[in-house]
Design a protein around this nucleic acid. Sequence first.
RNA 1: GCAGGGGUUGGGGAGUGGUUAAACCCACCUGUCUGUAAAACAGGCGCUUUAUGCUUCACAGGUUCGAAUCCUGUCCCCUGCACCA
Length: 431
Amino acid sequence: MNNKFRNIIEELEWRGSLKDYTPGAKEILIKDKITCYNGFDPTAKSLHIGNLIPILGLKRLQNFGHTPIIIIGGGTGMIGDPSGRSDERNLLSKEKLQENLLGIRKQLELFLDFENKKNPAQIINNSEWLSKINLIEFLRETGKFFNINTMLNKDSVQNRISREDGISFTEFSYQLLQAYDFWYLFEYYNCNFQMGGSDQWGNILSGIELIRKKNPSQKHKAHGITYPLLTTSNGEKFGKSIEGAITIDSNVTIPYKLYQYFFNTSDKDVLNYIKIFTNISVSEFTELEIEANKNASARNSQKYLAEEITKLVHGEKGLEDAKRQTQGLNFGEWEILIDSDYDDLYKDSNTTANINKKLLQKGIDINKLTVDYYICKSIGESKRLIQQGGISINGIKISDEEKIVTINDLKAGKVIILSKGKKNHKIIKVQ
RNA sequence: GCAGGGGUUGGGGAGUGGUUAAACCCACCUGUCUGUAAAACAGGCGCUUUAUGCUUCACAGGUUCGAAUCCUGUCCCCUGCACCA
């Protein structure tokens, strides 16, 4: 893990994690030690893997002696960011927001160093100041610096205005609040850098402009950098699976799922992802790259990526569990699964379910089973898949579309592993 | 508000009285091959008691032996004009 990079810019550029930057930003990051912030809005109760990019960005800054600040958007979360949205957000209730806030805060604490004497990370909730804003004062002292024409020209706003539903004043105001955050941090926390996804570029610039206008004497002191937004080479959104976002909360996305998600990264993306998500050094990377070109079928890069990320997010034990469960589920080696694996897999309701023992003693129609446990959408689909050889129990393909599943189909006397294709499994436990 | 165009199965988009559960493309699913890939190929993609069965083409009625297709009303969208500025 030793870092051969001379400075943060060199590292970010090599990792492909730098997209836009304000003039002079690079030089300052190389020469000085700065304080930089990145905001996270509590829209869900867990961060998803896309959030790892800014988190790692802050961490890398910290490694080079800069001071990271994480803003969790207790205030801005009340409003909703229109960027990248095609419709108005539903406002979250205050209780929900609070719950999300706590969850995210806890997760963020895992990644950065808060103990360090020199440049400890901080987590700050922007409701600290946003909730105290007085409307009249805000309009006079901050709103005055925003030009509606400029605001209207933003893509995020334009997109919404051209739609039938338009955009509410509330969301339209979001950019003011984010700019205000930056100004506030600049003023009271000596923070003059903001980092964010490239979709935040406009918001970041607004903040810089506000700072400039409010402090005419300190021209060009605030800066921003962005990292590119990740999409897969197929143009899909990164971090989304069929069942929803891949999160870093082991109760929502179990380590096995996380591992699988990255293991299934395509060859085209995997090397880029490794640079972005892991701390791989240039020399290690070169080695891996050569190996990947020579012997792609070994999938060493995917394995490396999946292992590193699982370890980063869930630790050594999480990784071990994920690998064992992979072996058990994806290769049908159910014997190696231990009791706690079932418990783990049980946290993911997409993968597991319970069945009443009596039902099994009577016997249950295979098609009913697949539909009841959400493997198939309809009995018709189930029959079709059986004809096509797409349904299996405990790794054995079912050929009889009228099959009655009974107690004799249990593995180890306690579970049925019902699968659609090679990757969709449902572990059904008898109770 | 007036005039014109339009709302079809996840998305796009054919179809303007009858073998139309509805062309085609994309997305998606399964299988073969394989590397738990990609590509390619094969199959599939409203529901079920698989039947000359049931429910679908914005919504509600109507005409007809028969309607996604015709009529009436309602809702929504797009374009032009007007109003407003």
